[in-house]
Structures are given as structure tokens and as C-alpha cells.
Simulated assay, not measured.
Amino acid sequence: MRHGSVDYFRADGSPVHPHTVQLNAAGREQADAAGALFKQCGVRFDRVIVSGLNRTVETAERVLAASGQSLTLESMAALEEIRGGRLVDIPPDQVEAAFLGAFTQGVETQRFLGGESIGEMLDRVLPAFESVLARDDWSSLLLVLHGGVNRALLARAMTGGRAFFGRMEQLPACINIVDVDRSGDMVVRSVNLAPTQWLHQHESLTTMEKLLAQYLRLT
């Protein structure tokens, strides 16, 4: 899953640090809806892994509560979202490219908001993911992570190697379903299932396009 919806900017336009941002009202509703769906379908988890950032922890806790399950969350910092730089350091004429370039181009050298590059994110995320796949302590696993990280993991599942599907959108609290066999081979069954809007009927912009519009409106 991706974490539920959050507000990365305060009403005065100042950014909220990504390590502290919490779910907003819509994000809590989305997480609860995902949990209710798991309960309805009889899905039970052996393990739950989060990145450790507040928004993944809160999402996982709400999913488990709504699905009637009680599990201890395991945090893996290596699965944190791609790390951006400081917005104030981005020249005005480069803001749009800084917000949209990493996901639209998908090139490993492309930096996200002037910070970490896609390649640097893959260097830390993929080994951590492989270590999870190699474990024998789960049959049904819930990973609650981030839009950028999920794109990397889904690309790994679909290609069998190192890749990044920047244009594969991940709605807040969406569910992706992947089967893994004993050899580590994967089959992707479903991507970007959003229980609060199955047909994405309220969407016309990507997540990063929404953030860019919000940033430009508030600055």
C-alpha cells in the first residue's frame, strides 16, 4: 500500500517536514476503507512492514484496526520515500522540473526536488526489498510505504530487475497485490486499487502535479 493522504504544506504555505507529516481527514478515511476491505475479503496478515515515517505508521495502524487485526509493526528505514532537498534552494525557473522530472522521466540520475536521485533511492530500497522476499516468516505480508518507493518495487516485480516506473500513479492508501513464489519470482495481480474511488473518478492530476499546484498557489 501507499500511505493515506497528507498535507505537505500548512495554510501559510510553509512546508511540513516529511518525517513528521500526519494523515489528514481524507487519509484517515482512506486507510479505514482499505482495512474494511481486507476484513470483508478475509485477508489476514502474518507481518506488517512500514518505512517508519509517521504517515506509514498511522496508515498501517488504522488498516489493522479496521480489519480487526493486532500485529506489531516492523520499521525499515531503507524503505523511506525518495528524499527531496530544500524547496528554498530550488531556483524559480526550475521548480516545475524539480517537482515533476523524477517521476515523468524516470532516469536514475534525475534528482527529486533537488535531493536524492532515483538511482540513489534504488540503491537502498531494492536490497531491503530483496531481504524481505528472502524471509520465511510470512505467507501474507502488508507493506505500507510510499508512492516513489512503490513504483520501484512494482518495477522490480514486473521486470525482474532494476527499474523505476515513474509514470505508474499511486493514489493515497492504494493497494497493490503481488504474488511471490519460493524462488522470489513475482506476479503482479493488481495495481493502484483505491477503495474510496475504484474508478479514480475524482482524479485528473498526478500526485506531484497536485503538490506543485499547491506549492505555487501558496508561495
Rank of each mutant, 00 (worst) to 15 (best):
M1W: 01
M1F: 06
M1K: 00
R2F: 03
R2V: 06
D7H: 00
V21K: 03
V21S: 05
V21Y: 02
V21M: 05
N24C: 03
A26V: 07
A34W: 13
G35W: 01
G35E: 03
C41G: 13
L53I: 09
L53N: 06
N54H: 12
T59R: 02
A66S: 14
Q69G: 07
T72V: 10
L73Q: 07
L73S: 13
A78L: 14
E81W: 01
R83Y: 11
R83G: 11
R83Q: 14
G84F: 04
G85F: 06
Q94T: 11
E96R: 10
A97C: 05
A98K: 00
F99C: 01
T104R: 10
Q105Y: 09
Q105P: 08
E108V: 10
Q110G: 07
F112N: 04
E116T: 01
L122Y: 00
R124Y: 06
V125E: 00
E130I: 08
E130M: 09
R135L: 08
D136Q: 06
L141A: 04
V149W: 03
A152E: 04
L154I: 13
G161I: 10
F165H: 08
G166H: 11
R167S: 09
M168S: 10
E169K: 06
L171S: 15
A173Q: 07
C174K: 08
D181N: 15
M186N: 08
V188N: 08
L193W: 05
T196K: 09
Q197A: 15
E203V: 15
L205Y: 05
T206V: 06
T207P: 02
E209K: 01
E209N: 02
K210M: 14
L212S: 00
